[in-house]
Structures are given as structure tokens and as C-alpha cells.
Design a protein around this nucleic acid. Structure first.
Lengths: 339, 339
DNA sequence: TTGTACGCGTTATCAC
DNA sequence: GTGATAACGCGTACAA
């Protein structure tokens, strides 16, 4: 006995309010153009019937949905959580609804989801980082859908982005590590394929080491997906290598925390026997013992600014303006000075 | 010079493929009814034009979107991350797109987002826990939108839910704590207002203590939103109280980790001077030192099952079947036995 | 197996 | 300030 309470439409509202559909539409979208009295009647009818606009129809007629889409690589670790939460909150206060999906770091899925969001009428889309197949960008441009990149910033790239310079930040951290006297450096990087953030962080290290005169072939580097256990396993592998590093630099805090954990399991003292660094400055890095030396990224700030800018692009039709945010080296007890 | 490459429509595809729009539609939705040869031509045209179906139009014509919505209280901490990731992955393999939004634990925002998802044609909706205004449930039922609750399970509630019994799980953990000889117990609970999970976890403790003959008025209980710093502050407040607890039971791992952190900052040894417990079994609980004693919840399992069940509801039109999942007490070094 | 024609719910243009 | 009416792009009877 499925009672099919029909979904109330704008026409139903018009009927019960005793006005035309057009007036209902105006009451909802441009209330200023409607008399106070009719507005009241319409509102009452809307509440009475529990009417909700059909966005499919609205999208077809008006080409706007007040919806912003975001595609993030993963929800599984907290890397993007804080920034996206801030993004969402700001969008909400601007009257937009955020719809999120996650791609599991799979470019195919990401491309699919871009089309899914476009099909559903997203007024604008937030993407993470620069690297993706050119066809995705072409699609977005052809569809005239404003998009903004976040979590990365490259001065030489024209695409609108709000983020930080992953390479430069890691370069500075490496600088610090060298200044503290470390010369035996190993690296656990996130998977660089298809991930410009991971690639640039790795580059930050290798470029700095090259400047220092290192032979990069002798620097142990392990690449592995961002995951605590992967960080742990990579760390163990590095420590079993021919020459023990004095410091293990990790591509992010998740890997760093994994390394730290395995160090403790192996009975290695951090930092006296081995130092460990991370990247991102998420909570995880603060709650472990010792706290992880890392690069703190202004996640909330980035989320807020991205929301403001993307909405500006959507509403003005103007091209996006990139913004570079500063990151900050945070030295904690997970590293020791050998100098 | 905004070049308005028009968005290709089904009619365009039909034209370039030299067939009727109906045939294109069939090629996309029921390819079995189309000859191999025309199918080829249509596919070529689709690829050629970069055609993407307009979901607004599809929704209007067919009342289905292959979209599932989920509303979670927050993305900011990792409580829901693993489960939602699993939910998303399973949905993807079932051919559905997941759209997520977060309510910041605000019932008004949640209600708004339910309507937003409904307006956008979500075929089904996942919600967290039982408690929300009745009007939300009425809306969902009136609209005939299948919905499923997760992260909670109550045998006496008819609403379809896939989750675990928060009260019973915490009751058991409290059991364990008592068995280990603790009699001086303090509690840091999440905000219980509007949150049945938090309320039931707290209940699990108080009910068990009552059975043990405790006078509940003498049990220190602090309620605070889930946040590491809140956990830390509440812990400090409890330890400055008249009678120092031998154990602080926390409403989730986030609070527990905060408590642990503050304990270390205060120079209190865990567990020799004070024991701490959490709830959820997220990564956070595993990476701190000592590891947090907690209740491990089968997040991924829950996500997978929720996806399967919700899709079943959507596709069959049948009523949802609830499933209770088992949780597991995990005793780690953050608690000491006084017995 | 394929094509024709209608309707889905909304906004926008044009009258009034 | 308000009311007709024509799109918008698609799925699906129905007809061929």
C-alpha cells in the first residue's frame, strides 16, 4: 500500500495560493517584485504543501542551481577535512549548497565525477591540485563551468588556484633539516604519478639536496600511497637499508605518523636515533609523541578564500584570480639537531 | 570574448549519428534494444561531441538520477571518514554517484540539506543516527524518498538503520573498566542534545554504574563538542576536581586523544596515574602513546552494507531492513588494572 | 528495430 | 504587480 502523495509542484502552490505559477516563481526568486500581500499567501501555501523547487526543472529553465561541487581525492584521511569544512561553511553563508564527491585518487573517477557534477548543474567546481587529463579542463571550458584549484599554487601556471607552493615549502623544510646538521637523509614520498602536490614536495627535497651537492642516486626514496601503514612499512624498509638515515622526511603527516609508529615498534628512539618530518600540519601530527615536525598549511583560510573566489567567479563571470597562501615550518620534538 | 560553445544535447547526437533522438536515448539507457550497428554510430557521435546527459531533464522525464545523497554531521574529524569512503566506493561499483554534505551538527542545516538533496533528485538518502525533527522524516516519507540511518542501531526503533548499539557497546566498555577495579570514574561526553549516539554512549556508562550501586550525582560528567582541545580542557577540569578519577571515559576517540594529550602536558602518567578510554576505534586512537583503549566500530563494513541496503531499497521499492553490527572492545595501554 | 509526439516543472518574455 | 506562454532536454508510450 504505497500511498503516492504526489510531490507538490509550483503549479500546486499557485492553485492553493490563488495566483499564477509565474507569481509563485517570482515570490521565490525575486520577492521584491511581488506585493507584500501575495507574498504572504504564497509563502503560506509553500509551507502548507511542503513544496520544494525541482532543481532539474529550474536548471533547465534558468541554468543556475546555487550548487557548488567539489571533488577531493579522499575522505579517508584528514588531509582535506578541515579545508573542505571551511569551504562548505563559507559557501553555506553565501547561500550555496556544496556537493562533495571523492575520487579515491583515481583520475578516471575524477573525470567521471566532473561530468556528473556538470550534468547535475553545478554552478562551479573545486578541484584539488593541477594535474589531470587535459580533456577534463577542455570539458570544463567547453561547458563554461567556472572551476578553481586548491591545495596547490604554481606561479607559472595560469589556471586559477588558491593554495600554497608545495615545492617551495618542502624546500624550506629541507633547508631546516640540513641546517640542523642532517646529511643522511631518506624520503618517504606519496605516490607522485598524477599527483602534482606529491611530486612537488619530493622535488622540493631533491632540488635542495642537489644544491647541497648530494648525489641523488644515493638518497633512498620510497614512494607509497598516503596511508599510515604504508608509512610504517616504508620506514622499516629504509631502516633496514645499508646505511641508516639520521632523518626520514615524509610526504605528509599520515606517512610521518606511520613512520613514527613503526619506529617505536622497532624500539628506535625518535628523535635521538632517528628524526622524522611530515607535511600538512593536521591534528594527527600534534597528538603523537613526540609531536611531528611538519609544514603547517592554512587549511581553513584556504577553504574560506576558495569559497569566496569561486562564488565571485560564478556570479561575475570573471576569470579566476589565483592566490598564494603562506605555509609555516613547525619544528617539534620529532627532529634533533646534530649541529 | 566568451565563446559559447553550446552544450551538446541528445538531439545533436541524434543529428550527427543520423538517427532519431529516441534511438540515442535507448542506446544510452537500454542498449540491448538497439542494433549493434546503430549503437556504434551513436557511441561515436557521443564521444565526438563530448555529450553528457542533462540530469535535470533526465530527472524530469524519468524520475531517477542514479544519485545517492548522504548528510554527515562533520567532515572535520575522522569519525565518519572511513565509513563514508566505503559507502562511496560501494555505491560507485553499483553505478551510483554519491553526493555528500555536512551539517556541522546543526539540525536546521541538516533539514535544509535533506530538502536540497530531494530537490536535486537524490534517489535515496543516508543519514547519521536517529534523532532529528519529526518533520524531516515526514518530508522524506511524503516524498517517498528511501532513507537509511547509519552509525546507530536501536532494536526498538522501526526506522531502517545499519549500525551498532552505542549504549550497549559503552555499557560493555564500562563493564570492563569496572572489572579492572576502577571505582573512581569520570566522564567526558560529546554533546548529547540532538545526538542520540552521544546520549546512548553516556547512558551506557550511567546505567552500568547504577547497576553497580553508584550514586550518579557523584560521578563527574562533562559534556562538550567533539574536538581534541575540548577533550583536553575537560580533562584538565576533571583532574582539578575535588576527587581525582582513576579513569576518564570519553565519548569518542577525539575527546580521548585530547584528554591524553593534556594529561601528558600536565605531567600525569597514563595509565599509571590516570586511565583514559575512547570510542570509535579510528586511526587517531592507534597512533597516540599509549594507544587508546576504545570500542572499535566496523566502519568499512557499515559503509558497504549501508550502500547495498539503500540501493536495494531504491531499486526494489521495498522497505529498509535494519542490521545490527557488532562492535569490539579494544583494550590498550591507556588503561591500567587496579584489581 | 526505429521514429513521432507528448509531458515532466521551472524560468523568462511578453503582454496586460 | 500579475498572468499567459514558450522554451529547456530527456524518456517513453505509441505507431510504424
Amino acid at each position: 500500500m504505497t500511498s503516492h502523495h504526489a510531490v507538490p509542484t509550483l503549479d500546486d502552490v499557485a492553485r492553493t495560493a490563488g495566483v499564477s505559477p509565474a507569481t509563485v516563481s517570482r515570490s521565490l526568486n525575486t520577492p521584491a517584485l511581488v506585493s507584500r500581500e501575495t507574498l504572504q499567501r504564497v509563502k503560506a501555501a509553500v509551507a502548507d504543501l511542503g513544496y520544494t523547487p525541482n532543481f532539474g526543472a529550474r536548471f533547465m529553465a534558468a541554468k543556475r542551481t546555487m550548487t557548488i561541487g567539489a571533488i577531493i581525492p579522499t575522505m579517508e584521511n584528514a588531509i582535506f577535512a578541515k579545508g573542505i569544512q571551511a569551504f562548505q561553511e563559507r559557501l553555506h553563508s553565501l547561500g550555496y549548497t556544496l556537493l562533495i564527491s571523492s575520487s579515491s585518487y583515481d583520475p578516471e573517477i575524477e573525470a567521471e565525477q566532473v561530468r556528473a557534477l556538470a550534468s547535475r548543474g553545478a554552478d562551479g567546481i573545486l578541484l584539488i591540485g593541477y594535474w589531470r587529463e587535459e580533456k577534463v579542463y577542455e570539458f570544463l571550458k567547453q561547458r563554461n563551468i567556472p572551476f578553481l584549484l586548491a591545495w596547490a599554487f604554481a606561479a607559472n601556471n595560469a589556471l586559477p588556484a588558491i593554495g600554497f607552493d608545495n615545492r617551495a615549502a618542502m624546500y624550506q623544510l629541507c633547508d631546516k633539516v640540513l641546517a640542523m646538521g642532517h646529511r643522511n637523509i631518506a624520503v618517504i614520498s606519496g605516490t607522485t604519478e598524477g599527483n602534482d602536490r606529491a611530486m612537488n614536495r619530493l622535488k622540493g627535497i631533491t632540488e635542495r639536496l642537489k644544491v647541497e651537492g648530494f648525489n641523488l642516486d644515493t638518497v633512498p626514496i620510497i614512494e607509497t600511497p598516503y596511508d599510515i601503514d604504508n608509512g610504517a612499512n616504508a620506514f622499516e624498509e629504509l631502516m633496514r637499508g645499508p646505511e641508516r638515515p639520521s632523518v626520514v622526511m615524509c610526504g605528509n603527516d599520515v606517512l610521518g605518523v606511520g613512520a613514527l609508529q613503526r619506529a617505536q615498534e622497532m624500539g628506535l628512539k625518535v628523535p635521538s636515533e632517528v628524526s622524522i618530518t611530515g607535511f600538512d600540519g593536521i591534528e594527527l601530527a600534534r597528538v603523537v609523541t613526540p609531536k611531528l615536525t611538519t609544514v603547517r598549511v592554512p587549511h581553513s583560510e584556504m577553504g574560506h578564500r576558495a569559497a569566496d573566489e569561486l562564488v565571485r567567479m560564478v556570479e561575475s563571470g570573471e576569470v579566476g584570480r589565483s592566490q598564494e597562501l603562506a605555509s609555516e615550518i613547525v619544528v617539534e620534538k620529532s627532529i634533533i639537531s646534530l649541529a
